[in-house]
Design a protein around this nucleic acid. Structure first.
Length: 495
RNA sequence: GGCGCUAUCGUCUAAUGGUUAGGACACGAGCUUUUCAAGCUUGUAAUCGGAGUUCGAUUCUCCGUAGCGCUACCA
């Protein structure tokens, strides 16, 4: 069985780029009926964020990228664990790492290093000055085991470094990039155990991926350069080397690595703004991967169906918000009136337009109003301003906007009075189609133009320069509110 | 500086050793129209540069250029 994993470090909320990485790992696993594992890499104690794990889980589940194994969401909604090869949180695996560090040292594949930060700094500065490749100079390789043990016993701070071979080369066969070759002599003796007793990423990732039986490592391109270190560790341990796939990066508009400075990067930010998970997944999946056809809309199930890692792009992709908006609009249009209303509820509640708790009666009441906007909004958070006028009466719009561009204030007032008269004597059924045909007939019969009447009418009802059409609004509002708003507009304009 | 990766419309991408280099977003125009949105029709727009291989290269090779990543006791 193939196993893939997503291994974020909880140093913040789930990044949109990480979501894509997780998605690809998930798709590959699902495509091949394998397992997708979530492992938490919390070895960096300095950058640890308290609710990081909770947020990562929440965002992943929201998006539908649900782990089969590892850290999962428990019945109570809190993080818990599933699977045979745990724990799946690195800070809980310290003894395991210790054991394998000791093994490397015993086999002379790693050594204790006592160099101070200051010395390391100096070495690097000198290397830079002489335009030499930077890296550890191997100073502590010469320290004997006895001396090292004595110094440790004396309380000296130390780290453990892996011994990189000084000759030969390491070849990587990347699923996306093909063969990549590195000269061993240019690769650093990487620190694998920090002075705080925690392993670094490089050691932990190899040990965990091995014991968690990961077959395909899918991760960002930023890891490509350190892969030879990982390969060397696999060789030292005598473990089977998994397949690697290094994904291209997600980019800002200026081509740099996607960052907070230039906009929202957390999945949660997008959720809050009213992007649907389907839209975000579809969009993000197509940033660096494409099945080849001309179909743009892909559900998660269809993505699994058509996924193949070979079709992954090699080039970084700019995160293009306009296209995301387009996707979101498409998926909103696809929703039923009711699920759209339900999705909008929290936004309306926040604006005080509806109670916090979903109320069945109120829900069915607002569905007609919301449906007017379902085809129009790009994001759910736009709904409050978009339908606010339907739920509560608009009062503070400037009277000038009641005047059509081809008309003037005097005529607008006159026309409002005319339509008010016509509608107050309405005998027919108050339905959109009937209202529309009859009103338009009346307009024509009286030698008026649609714009003369319909523009001020629409603004009187909505208080907005841009809104759905007059007849749709009238149908939602009913005759009483329609007439009341017309009256208000007439007052406004005659003031 | 070193090492590595990458290079098709503004953006996301498709395609092939031979095509009018296709689609989507965005943008422009037109239709529709009371506004916006939607819809329909339509337009502008790309193979980084130079060599080589070849009858033929955007596609294969090399060089250059540019961008990006890594170069931490961060991941």
């Amino acid at each position: 069985m193939i196993k893939t994993r997503f291994a974020p470090s909880p140093t913040g909320y789930l990044h949109i780029g990480s979501l894509r990485t997780a998605l690809y790992a998930y798709l590959l696993a699902k495509k091949k009926s394998g397992h997708f594992i979530l492992r938490i890499e919390d070895t960096d104690r300095a950058r640890f964020v308290d609710d990081g794990v909770a947020n990562i889980l929440k965002s992943l589940y929201w998006a539908g990228v649900v782990p089969d194994e590892g850290v999962v969401r428990g019945a109570d909604g809190e993080p818990s664990e599933a699977g045979e090869n745990g724990p799946y949180t690195q800070s809980l695996r310290l003894p395991i790492y210790k054991k394998y560090v000791d093994e490397l040292i015993a086999n002379d594949h790693a050594y204790y290093c006592f160099c101070s930060a200051e010395r390391l700094d100096e070495v690097r500065k000198l290397q830079e000055l002489n335009k030499q490749p930077t890296g550890y100079d191997g100073n502590c390789r010469n320290v004997t085991r006895e001396e090292a043990e004595a110094r440790i016993k004396a309380g000296e701070k130390f780290v453990v470094r892996m011994k990189m071979p000084r000759t030969g080369e390491t070849k990587i066969n990347d699923l996306i990039r093909g063969e990549v070759v590195f000269k061993n002599e240019l690769i650093d003796d990487q620190v694998i155990l920090k002075s705080d007793g925690f392993p670094t990423y490089h050691l932990a990732v190899v040990v965990d991926d091995h014991f968690m039986e990961i077959t395909h490592i899918i991760r960002g391109e930023e890891w490509l350069s350190s892969t030879p270190k990982h390969v060397q560790l696999y060789k030292y341990f005598g473990w089977e080397i998994p397949a690697f796939a290094h994904l291209p990066l997600l980019l800002n508009t200026d081509g740099s690595k996607l960052s907070k400075r230039q906009g929202d990067v957390s999945v949660d930010d997008y959720r809050k703004k009213g992007y649907l998970p389907e839209a975000l997944i579809n969009f993000v999946a197509f940033l660096g991967w494409n099945p080849g056809g001309e179909k743009e809309m892909y559900s998660l199930a269809e993505l699994i169906q058509d996924y193949s890692i070979e079709k992954t792009a090699k080039k970084g992709a700019v995160f293009n918000l306009e296209k995301l908006d387009w996707y979101n609009k498409q998926y909103i249009k696809l929703m039923s009136a009711e699920s759209f209303a339900l999705a909008c509820w929290p936004y309306l509640a926040k604006a005080g337009l509806v109670p916090n708790e979903v109320d069945k009666k109120k829900l069915s009441e607002i569905i007609p109003a919301l449906s007017l906007e379902k085809e129009r909004v790009a994001r759910l958070d736009e709904i409050t301003t978009a339908v606010g006028y339907l739920i509560s009466e608009p009062t503070d719009y400037p009277p000038e906007i009641l005047v059509w561009k081809k008309s003037n204030r005097t005529d607008a007032l006159k026309n409002l009075e005319l339509i008010q008269g016509f509608l107050s004597e309405w005998k027919g059924e108050w339905k959109k189609e009937i209202l529309e045909t009859e009103t338009k007939k009346w307009i024509a019969d009286n030698g008026l133009t649609n714009g003369d009447i319909l523009w001020p009418l629409r603004v009187a009802l909505s208080g907005l320069e841009k809104s759905p059409g007059s007849f749709e609004i009238m149908a939602v509002l009913g005759s009483e509110k329609t007439l009341a708003r017309l009256k208000k507009a007439i007052t406004k304009l005659s003031a």
